[in-house]
Amino acid sequence: MTDNHHPPLRSFGRLKSRPIKPRQAALMETRLPGLRVPPGPVDPAALMPGARETWLEIGFGGGEHMAAQAARAPDVLIIGAEPFLNGVASAVRHIDEQGLENVRLHDGDVRELIARLPDASLARVFILFPDPWPKTRQQKRRLVQPELVAELARVLKPGGRLRFASDVASYVDQALERFIAHPAFAWTAGRADDWRVPPADHITTRYEEKRLGDCAPVFLDFLRR
C-alpha cells in the first residue's frame, strides 16, 4: 500500500497525551512485548493456534470494545491496531485484568499491519469512531480512503463482515460512498434502524458516550461479497 516516494498521510493525531500511569507503564514493559504482532508476514494461525477465526479492530482507543469482544469470543483471535500510546497502555491493562489470551496488538499505523496480512485472512473488521479530521482541508487524512478499502477487501474472506461507526456526519457519508463504490462490499442495511440503532453485538465505550461529533452515532455494516 505504501509508495516509497509518497508515503500515506498520517491518519491519526497525537501519539501520546497525558503521562501514562505507573501501573500501566509497568504493564507496557512486561506484557506488551508478548502481545505484539511480530514483524514480517503475519500468520494468524501462528499467533493463536486453533482460533476459529481472526478479527481486526482498527483504532481500538482505550481497548474497551476490543477486550469485551475478546471476552465474548475466547475462541477468536482479535488483533487490535492503535498508534496512541495512552490507548495501548489502557488496552494492555484491560487484557491483563481480564486474563485475555486471544488478543494481539499492533502499536502503530494499521496500514503497515494490513499490508502484512494474508489474503482472505480476516472474518471481521471494526473501524469504530476513527479520528474524524472534520475540517475540509483535513479530510485527506481520514483513514477510510480508496486504497485502504481495497486492502480491506483483500484481507477479508468472502462472507466476512466490516463495521464502520462514526458520529461525524460528513465522515459517515464519505465512508459509505467509498465502501459501496468497491465491488467487494455490500451494505447490509435494509431500513433506517439498521444504521441508527447500535447492532446487537456492539459494545458502547466511554468515548462513544461523550458524543463529541455532530450527529448521533451511525453504524454501517458491510458484507464481503
Rank of each mutant, 00 (worst) to 15 (best):
W133R: 00
P130R: 06
W195M: 03
W133Q: 04
R141G: 13
F129W: 04
A216W: 05
R191G: 07
E57P: 15
A181D: 12
T30D: 11
E151S: 14
G40S: 07
G160T: 01
S166N: 06
A46K: 11
F164R: 01
R191N: 08
V110H: 02
K210Q: 15
V92E: 07
N86T: 09
E209M: 15
A200R: 01
Q138P: 05
K157S: 06
G80L: 00
P8K: 03
R116C: 05
R36N: 02
L56C: 10
F185N: 06
R10C: 14
I127T: 10
H6Y: 10
C215T: 15
H94M: 07
D214H: 04
A26Y: 08
G80A: 00
A91K: 00
R225L: 14
A67W: 09
R10G: 12
F84D: 06
D119K: 11
L156V: 03
R10D: 12
N4A: 15
D221R: 07
A123Y: 04
R18W: 13
N86I: 11
A81V: 14
C215N: 08
I95D: 01
F219W: 03
V172L: 01
K140C: 05
A120T: 08
S121R: 05
H6K: 04
L15P: 00
P132Q: 08
R224Q: 09
V149N: 07
E208N: 08
D214P: 04
T204D: 06
R31C: 04
G59S: 06
L128D: 01
F129R: 03
M28C: 12
N4K: 03
E57K: 11
P22F: 08
L128G: 01
I58G: 00
H5Q: 08
P22C: 12
V197M: 09
L77A: 01
G159A: 05
R163A: 10
A186F: 10
G13C: 12
R36T: 07
I203D: 04
V125A: 12
D193Y: 02
A67N: 09
K210Y: 03
R10A: 14
R137E: 09
L56D: 07
D109R: 00
I95N: 00
A26E: 15
A46V: 15
D194Q: 11
G213I: 05
L156F: 04
M1Y: 07
M48G: 02
I20Y: 05
L15K: 04
A165H: 03
D96S: 15
R111N: 12
R111T: 14
V168P: 06
G80K: 00
T30G: 09
L176E: 08
R93N: 10
F222H: 04
A26T: 13
P132C: 13
F60P: 07
R191L: 07
P118V: 11
